[in-house]
């Protein structure tokens, strides 16, 4: 029963130049995507520090999504190359510590890919619904 009613919280860090525009386009195109997602606009996907990701989990997120420009399309030339390097490391470290690294999703979504944005959010939400609530990295100070 819990499974049916569980609505995961997803924090999505969206790059200002691509993915945020993609999300915007999904909105203006009236595409419906799950409302589990909370979008945070960042100037570049490489702005997302590993601390921000962990902090999102600690604060109660069940999933964290980082969306940036396709490789080669970065507004700042190399920002998303840094992102993929760091997030690969963070994912492998999370896995090594027994944390659920699949709760962290990195995806390249450009400004005209509203469909891709919608599909990504949908599939990530349904995956998290199956996985259930994340409890391994909860900060007790943030518990309600």
């Amino acid at each position: 029963m819990m499974q049916d009613t569980f609505e995961p919280k997803i924090i999505a860090f969206c790059c200002n130049w691509c993915s945020y525009a993609g999300a915007d386009l999904a909105g203006t195109g009236r595409l419906k995507y799950p409302e589990n997602i909370r979008i945070i606009r960042v100037p570049c996907s490489s702005r997302v520090d590993s601390a921000l990701v962990l902090r999102a989990f600690q604060n109660g997120a069940d999933g964290v999504m980082i969306a940036g420009c396709h490789p080669g399309d970065c507004h700042y030339d190399t920002g998303n190359y840094h992102t993929r390097k760091r997030m690969m490391l963070l994912k492998s470290l999370m896995e090594f510590m027994g944390l659920d690294e699949e709760r962290l999703l990195v995806k390249w979504i450009s400004g005209n890919e509203a469909d891709r944005f919608k599909d990504t959010v949908e599939s990530f939400t349904s995956k998290l619904k199956k996985m259930g609530a994340s409890g391994k990295v909860r900060d007790l100070r943030c518990a309600k």
Partner: peptide
């Protein structure tokens, strides 16, 4: 500020946070 971690002792999440970020 930001108060990522404080001196709370029995806080697994804060330990994790500290050690992941330190290693990183």
């Amino acid at each position: 500020n930001p108060d990522y971690i404080d001196r709370a002792k029995d806080q697994m999440a804060q330990h994790q946070f500290y050690h992941v970020i330190r290693a990183f």
